[in-house]
Nucleic acid binder design. Structure first.
Lengths: 338, 338
DNA sequence: TTGTATGCGTTATCAG
DNA sequence: CTGATAACGCATACAA
């Protein structure tokens, strides 16, 4: 196809100089109507497209946005990346993608690679937050970047979900149904988001005047089914929970399996609330009540912030908090008083 | 960080010429032991990393693989891309990602973009197959590419799933349980994969001596819940199906909802088999019997094929067929004779 | 308004 | 074995 049609070819074909071609395509100013249209038509006919490397070499800018997520196979990140991709291509940028697997070395490796590829900006869910982030390669990097779902207030732009408010609502909902023993599987071990979930949970319990039972709060790993064992143990205890809140990754799958194996029925015997984007629980029966992540908005907002940052590199850093919505399914019921 | 340390800086620092530096880093041959180690140490100290654009401009090769899928938010493609990413970064390549949404124009746009970015190769699930593919921009493009899950035998390398064999097994399984009215929601409208699924279904029925009822075969769209209406209609008909096979996208979600709304119980009243990667049906209750796509192998194989192709551009094109495995869940039961 | 010439950082060729 | 230099394709400062 348009294998190697360069600005030279266009110039020759249009009977003008290469400078003029370039000016038509970029500067826009100071070109005669005639020359402009002549060039444009040739460009169109030949399907000319500026070589990214020549331009990148000259300008120092590619039209590439890098994106690093822990794991694209996780539907949460797949959805976020999908939203970012849409926003980015709309602006005629391309998306360079990498999985960090939450490992610092992989993240650094990807960062170096992205750097040498001259990405104009970066959207990332880093493996670290807080001081650890600042001291790491990411914190030192000068690439304009936006942080997704990690706490880095003040040092970078970030978009986050208001986990605390979301889980508080969920907890209140369960409490209003009479539940007093509510289990929480936070996910996000060691992360702000996990702590926020727990905080929201404790907020709700405090208002309700319930003393939280530490046994009921679990910090499962999102990539494993460890929650299965945890939930099984809880259900076999003398005071089993009557409701449970869990992140809709492997965590929730493990929880549901434990409930099933115990011969319990949702919502008759136990109420369940999921946390996550909506599509994940499509196959659940009954339909799960959900604290919904609006991952689409999350990705979109991250992109917008990044493009802002690209324009004005030295503004103050923003931190945007997205609300979480409680979507009622059929997995919650009033507590049966025995 | 190592913002702009060039080969010049390394050369100066090491007290050699830039040519020598380049030779140490690339050629490898004909450099004295001493010079080599000197250069290497400086490279290391300065954190030198060759500028991708200069190199791309010079060599015409980037270390970038492009990847175009219909929709990364679809868990099938998320998994495939995940596997590709792993394979590609292991070879020190980067992955440029694009969503085509199955639209020809978007696909062409992405292709042009990838082209101008000088991707070394492309892994793609195109929006078209067969003659349409050959005549399209993709068929004319000279970028080394591997096709995933689309029929393009002879003109490009491709990896596909043996849908026919998979669905045949599923159908046979249901038949062995006594089912004779089996509904099939193929997905992949107008695509080889859809036709193959139907063929496998018909293979099984033929062996069983059952005349297929065209009413029972539906070509749902994977991105919509249209299957819900279809399934509802089927269940309300005078001769409802006693079993159903459906792709584990929105299609299956719609089917399950229709079954639920009809007040039917799986597997007591109706048997269900899903088609897709395993993780999608994590939340299903009961656990679904599954014709499993090994998307991991699919992505891995695609990458391997592409790297082979990069090495020897003019070999004969390969077509690799991956088997599908029937994973038994608890969603199928013997037909209840009323 | 238009054309010409330079340099961006590499690699490869060629002369030493 | 090593150093100098051309060329990759583009954008732009400068000359016309």
């Amino acid at each position: 196809m348009n294998s190697k049609v360069s600005v030279r070819d266009v110039a020759r074909e249009a009977g003008v100089s290469i400078g003029s071609v370039s000016r038509v395509l970029n500067g826009g100013a100071n070109v005669s109507r005639d020359l402009r249209s002549r060039v444009l038509s040739v460009v169109d006919r030949l399907g000319y497209q500026a070589n990214v490397h020549a331009r990148g070499l000259r300008l120092g800018s590619t039209k590439i946005i890098g994106c690093i997520v822990p794991e694209i196979r996780n539907h949460i990140y797949a959805n976020i990346v999908g939203a970012i991709e849409a926003a980015v291509t709309r602006k005629h940028y391309m998306l360079l993608l990498g999985n960090s697997l939450g490992e610092v070395e992989r993240e650094q490796h990807l960062l170096r690679f992205f750097h040498s590829h001259g990405v104009d900006g970066l959207i990332i869910t880093p493996s670290s937050e807080g001081p650890e982030f600042i001291q790491g390669a990411l914190g030192k990097s000068r690439i304009p970047m936006v942080i997704v779902d990690r706490e880095v207030t003040g040092v970078r732009d970030s978009v986050m979900l208001d986990q605390r408010q979301g889980i508080r609502h969920a907890s209140e909902h369960l409490h209003s149904l009479g539940h007093r023993r509510i289990a929480l599987f936070t996910g996000g071990r060691g992360l702000w988001s996990g702590r926020e979930r727990q905080a929201g949970y404790e907020d709700a319990l405090a208002v309700a005047g319930i003393t939280p039972d530490p046994q009921l709060v679990r910090q499962a790993d999102s990539w494993s089914y460890s929650s299965y064992e945890d939930m099984r143990t809880l259900l076999q205890s003398t005071q089993p929970p009557t409701a449970v809140i869990g992140a809709s990754t492997h965590i929730l799958a493990g929880i549901l399996k434990a409930i099933r194996d115990a011969g319990l029925l949702i919502p008759r015997d136990i109420s369940v609330i999921a946390i996550g984007p909506g599509d994940a629980v499509d196959f659940a029966n009954p339909p799960l009540t959900l604290v919904r992540w609006d991952v689409d908005s999350l990705g979109k907002l991250a992109s917008e912030l990044l493009f802002e940052r690209l324009r004005t590199p030295h503004d103050n850093f923003q931190r945007r908090l997205l609300p979480m919505e409680l979507i009622l399914g059929q997995s919650c019921a009033p507590l049966r008083t025995p």
